[in-house]
Design a protein around this nucleic acid. Sequence first.
DNA 1: CACCAGGTATACG
DNA 2: CGTATACATGGT
Length: 280
Amino acid sequence: MKRWIDDDFDPEKIRLSGQCFRIQRLDERRYLFVTGSQLLILNICDQKNEALCLELSCDAGSWEKIWRPYFDLDRSYRGLRAEESEKSPFIKESMRLGKGLRILRQDPWETLVSFILSQRKSLPAIARCVELLCRKFGRKVMEIPGGNDVYTFPSAMELLSASEGELAACGLGYRLPYLQDAARRCASGELSLESLASLPDRDLLEALSQVKGVGLKVASCVALFAYGRTGLAPVDVWIGRAIKEHFAGQSPFPAFGDHAGIIQQYIFYAMKWGRPGQEE
DNA sequence: CACCAGGTATACG
DNA sequence: CGTATACATGGT
C-alpha cells in the first residue's frame, strides 16, 4: 500500500529523536516501527517537491486507526515551523535542523517503562535495555532471517512474573525496583494507564508521579510521547543546557503554549545532533 | 581509565 | 521552599 505525505517527515530524525527506542533502520529508505503488537515497515519510495510517497506494509484500516495517529499526521509541522520559528533565532535554527521530526503517539505502558529506565542512561544504553526486555519477556511478532527477530514490548503482567535475576540481566541497575513498582501498580489495576487519558495535564503528571522512580521529567515525557500532551516540555540535561546557554537561564516554553513540547523536541534534537562531535 | 548519560529519592537546612 | 549526594551500568 502507498500513501503520499505532504508535510515534514523524516524517519531517520524521528529514530534519533530520543522519544522511541525501538525504531530500526533497515537500509537507507526502509524503517521498521513497532507499537503494541503492531509492526510497520515503511519505505520511502518517491519524492516530489516537498511531498513524500511511503510504501507501507500495513492495510488501509490499520494505517488510519493506528499509524496515522502514531505519527501525528493530522498536525502540520510545516505550518508549525512557519508559525513559531520567528520567536527566537535559536529556535528557528533548531527547527531548520530538526525539520522532519514528529511527536509520536506511543503506547503508554511501553513509554512509561522506557523513560523509567532512561534516567542517567545514554540513548544507546536505553535502546539496549529495552531490546533485552522485549527479547526475554515479549512475544515474537516477526521472524527475521538475519537473526534479530522482532518482539512485542512485554506487558505489566509479563514483567511482573519475571524473575529478578532475569530482569537484572537486562542492565536495569538501580531502576529494577522502579520497574517492579510500575508493573505491580499497572497489573493490579491500582493504576490504569488507559483511564489517565481523560485527565487534565496537571492530574496526569501527578498520577504518573505516584510510581516510584517517576519524577517530573519522566512523567512529562510519558505525557508528551504517549498521551500527546504537547503543551508540556520535559526538561532534561540537554534542554537545561539550552536554557542556560541560549535563553539566559529563563525557560522559553511558556511563550509557546500548546506547542511547547514540540518546540522542546526540536531543541533537544538540535542540542544533541546539531553540532559536530556528537555522532553515535 | 575517567567521565557522562533524556533523573529521582532522600536527607538535610 | 532550595541544595547536596548516592545510585548501577554501559558507551565513549
